[in-house]
C-alpha cells in the first residue's frame, strides 16, 4: 500500500461520512441522487464477492464491509426514512440508470480478466463504478444550486478517483508486472467525468461563493 492509495481510500471514506452527515444532520437528501446511491450499493455488492473466498488484509476486509454497509444504509435511509424521503428530488433524478447497469454488464461479459462468475462481476463493478456518478451529476446540473455538504461529498469522491490514478502511476513504476488496464482505463474515464464538476467547484471556492452549475 502506498500513500496515494491510502489517501484515495480515506477520501472515499470521508465522502461517505460527509454524505451520511448531510442526511442525518439535516434530515434531508435533497441534491443527492438515489439512483447513483443504488448503483454504488450494487458496485460494492458485486465487487466484494471475494470477501469470503480471498483474504488480502484485515484493512481490505474492514473497508469492504464498511463500503457495503454504508452504501446500503444510504439507500435504505433515502427509501424508507419518513422525513428524509420527502426531501428527495425525485423529479430531477430521472436518469435511466438501468441502461448503465445493462451496458456495464454486457461490457463485463465481453471484456474481463477471466470468464468466471466472480471475474465477470468484478469487471461489471469496475465499469459500473465509472458511470455511477452520472445520475448524480445530472441531478446537480438540473437543480443548478449545489448545497455545501453535497458539494463536499462529490468533491471527496472525485479526490478519491484522482488519488487512485496517482496510485496506479506509482505502482506502474515501482512494481514489476503491474498491469491492470481494466481498472486503470475505467478509473480514468470515471475521473474525466468529474472534470466539469471540479471546474465549478474551484471557481466557487476561489470566489468564496455558493456553488452553482450553469443551466
Amino acid at each position: 500500500m502506498n500513500i496515494f492509495r491510502f489517501a484515495g481510500d480515506m477520501t472515499h471514506l470521508i465522502s461517505i461520512l460527509v454524505l451520511l452527515l448531510k442526511i442525518y444532520a439535516t434530515k434531508s437528501c435533497s441534491g443527492i441522487s438515489l439512483k447513483t446511491q443504488e448503483l454504488y450499493a450494487l458496485v460494492f455488492l458485486t465487487r466484494y464477492l471475494d470477501l469470503f473466498t480471498d483474504f488480502i488484509s484485515v484493512y481490505n476486509t474492514i473497508m469492504k464491509l464498511v463500503f457495503i454497509a454504508s452504501s446500503l444504509a444510504v439507500v435504505c435511509c433515502m427509501r424508507m426514512h419518513r422525513v428524509v424521503r420527502r426531501s428527495y428530488d425525485k423529479d430531477l433524478d430521472t436518469f435511466r440508470h438501468y441502461f448503465l447497469i445493462l451496458a456495464s454488464f454486457v461490457l463485463a461479459l465481453l471484456v474481463n480478466e477471466k470468464f468466471t462468475f466472480q471475474e465477470i462481476f468484478w469487471a461489471f463493478s469496475i465499469y459500473l463504478e465509472a458511470l455511477a456518478i452520472l445520475p448524480q451529476l445530472v441531478l446537480l446540473q438540473r437543480s443548478g444550486n449545489v448545497d455545501n455538504l453535497t458539494g463536499q461529498y462529490v468533491f471527496f469522491l472525485g479526490a478519491y478517483r484522482a488519488f487512485y490514478i496517482l496510485n496506479w502511476i506509482y505502482r506502474y513504476f515501482t512494481e514489476q508486472h503491474f498491469s491492470r488496464w481494466i481498472a486503470c482505463v475505467s478509473g480514468l474515464v470515471q475521473t474525466v467525468l468529474y472534470a466539469d464538476f471540479f471546474y465549478y467547484y474551484f471557481i466557487s471556492w476561489k470566489n468564496n461563493a455558493k456553488m452553482q452549475l450553469p443551466a
Binding site: 492509495r5 481510500d9 472515499h12 471475494d50 480471498d54 488480502i56 481490505n60 473497508m63 469492504k64 463500503f67 480478466e113 468484478w122 487512485y164 496510485n167 508486472h177 503491474f178 491492470r180 481498472a183
Partner: peptide
C-alpha cells in the same frame, strides 16, 4: 498470485 495482485485494491 496474479489474481490477488489485480484485486488487492478496493
Amino acid at each position: 498470485s496474479n489474481k490477488e495482485e489485480s484485486h488487492d485494491e478496493l
